[in-house]
């Protein structure tokens, strides 16, 4: 048994509510893999989007507060939601290289963030801390015969020089991760394209086309399910399946699930705890059809 590794954990708003399964399945698999996720004793919303006009310091205020809380509790902070990860990491980069910005934000909150915390996406923790080799050894139920398509979207990869968890044009971390669980990894062109993100609140039809393009690309390359690390990607894609059936009659809806649910499944976690019942398109019949 390896010694448990401590790491600060930021769930974020969405994982605390609609994406509960994403959170609970991860906590459970982390335990099995010897990672001690310590939820920050205090946290607030990260702000969801990193402001793209550098003069908008208010836009990083929320994330700065999270970073400041995190550095008091440890040297490293991990999160699951791609949006949270992107905002926290970009905020950190922006504040760490600009003393003036750091001072203004610190004064505003009356905090003293100093740049002392490293921000990691949980996939990076799985790769670097645990190692894919060790995960492979811990797999109890190899996902044999399942054809799964990893979906990166934008926030894990761009901007590459600030947040990229892997190469921004040809990433492999997600594929490598899924391969360790014994499934067949589907490669498809649109795995790094955007699902439509926040314009789901204003432009549903456009999101349906954008998400539909991703889905169709995965489907045509043989995907039986799409695997994501972002609750907004999941939401947009699930809600675009119907429109895609109309646009492309050959298309059959496929389930969209979080990577941690797949991990939990392979590690032999209690199925009931993985949150599959919340998915719009049920993943369980597919499992059954593969004898899993």
């Amino acid at each position: 048994m390896t010694k448990e590794k401590d790491i600060g954990y930021y769930p974020g708003c969405t994982l605390n509510t609609v994406a509960r399964g994403f959170d609970t399945s991860t906590r459970e698999s982390a335990k099995i893999l010897g990672i001690n996720l310590k939820e920050l004793s205090q946290w607030n919303c990260c702000g969801a989007v990193y402001p793209l006009t550098p003069d908008n310091l208010m836009g990083v205020a929320g994330a700065a507060k999270v970073l400041s809380a995190a550095e008091k509790e440890g040297e490293r902070l991990t999160t699951l939601c791609s949006f949270c990860f992107n905002v926290l990491k970009r905020t950190k980069t922006g504040l760490d290289r600009d003393e003036e910005r750091r001072r203004v934000v610190n004064d505003f909150h009356e905090i003293d963030y100093s740049g002392g915390v490293k921000v990691l996406h949980f996939l990076e923790v799985l790769k670097e801390d645990v190692g894919f080799g060790k995960i492979k050894e811990s797999v109890k139920t190899p996902l044999k015969g399942l054809k799964l398509a990893p979906y990166y979207g934008c926030m894990l990869l761009r901007p590459f020089e600030e947040v990229g968890i892997d190469d921004h044009e040809n990433p492999t971390i997600f594929e490598d991760f899924l391969a360790t669980l014994g499934c067949e990894v589907v490669r498809y062109p649109k795995r790094i394209d955007c699902c439509g993100a926040h314009i789901s609140v204003s432009e549903k039809e456009i999101v349906a086309v954008m998400s539909g393009n991703v889905l169709l690309s995965a489907f045509r390359n043989g995907a039986e399910a799409l695997i994501t690390s972002c609750p907004l990607c999941l939401y947009n894609i699930e809600r675009s399946e119907e429109a895609l059936v109309k646009r492309e009659p050959a298309f059959k809806p496929i389930p969209v699930v979080y990577f941690s649910q797949i991990l939990g499944l392979a590690l032999g976690q209690d199925r009931e705890s993985l949150g599959f019942e919340r998915n719009m398109y049920d993943f369980r019949p597919l499992l059954k059809s593969k004898g899993l």
Partner: peptide, 12 residues
């Protein structure tokens, strides 16, 4: 909508 969609949408 997931919270992040609302927060992000309203911010943008």
């Amino acid at each position: 909508s997931p919270q992040q969609a609302l927060v992000a949408g309203f911010r943008k």
